[in-house]
Amino acid sequence: MATEALGWWGVPLGILAGTLRGSAPFLFVSLGECLTEKSGKINLGLEGTLLMGAMSAYGVSYLTQDAVGSFWAPWLGVLAAGFAGMTLGTIHGWLAQQPRVNDVAVGIAMIIFGSGLAFFLGKPFIQPQASQLFTFEFGAWSSNPAVQSALKVSPLFLMGVAIAPIMQWFFRSTRWGLYIRAVGDSPQAALAMGISTFKVRMLSIVAGSFFAGIGGACLSLYFPGVWTERISSGQGLMAVALVIFARWSPLQCLWASLLFGGAQAIGPAFQSVGIDAYYYLFNAAPYILTLVIMVITCSPQRTLIGAPGALGKDE
């Protein structure tokens, strides 16, 4: 491992590299979840969407790489991941809006269904090597291979970074953003404005699932860049907690994703300098971090600032 040559500097460098790589899926899933929750429904099933996206992206990239070449094949994969996400989102959006159906329960069912479908369809893709997305080599100025590999940044990550402020602007300054916020805060008021709650929520959930599917593509086509059944390990669910931490603000989702990506990189970074005694405990860092953050930010007395008013209510 080239990082060893850097000695202890390998740890912060490893965490930086891990942040750049590992935060992309968090970013896309949390932006998707943010969009969904703004309309007043929770989608816990994004864990399944993430897996389905990762599988579709990898599978399509592998199957089309001979036909369209190794540059465009992964982009087709990214698109396929988005569409796979939208398909699952449609099921969730329709079912979660039926009377007397709890959106949290639908989410749990969608985790089981989505991950089952991803493992089922993805079985043939576990072995073969699919074309990966290209990366920007921001580390080319350095002669150190560790720095070079750390600063390989995916265009998907940059896209996510760009989408966050755009979504912020979308919610604040556009008619459609207002519709979504109205439906999420007060369905009755939205109804009085002549907005169809069902349609707006449906579109928000489907669009959110599109983002989550692309988050899956980040996993399988960028980092770690393989398709296995253990690829997501709860990132889709952590994103739900992340949105709470980010107070339903897309821009804060960006900072929170970077924090979570960094927390995830702690274990591997220490392992790369030869400390692996607590490898598994360090790997639990993102989960513990999420829990601690939720304990700090939540309160039993009042609803959270920024929380959509109709979130978690049956209306």
Partner: peptide, 30 residues
């Protein structure tokens, strides 16, 4: 956590799954 801090019990119990598994992996590896 739900009662005293208002933390969503679905998410916290799910996070506790991963923490328990990590703890078990740590103990059986070490």
């Amino acid at each position: 956590l739900r009662h005293y801090r208002g933390v969503n019990e679905t998410i916290s119990s799910l996070l506790l799954n991963y923490i328990a598994i990590a703890l078990m992996n740590h103990l059986v590896e070490g």
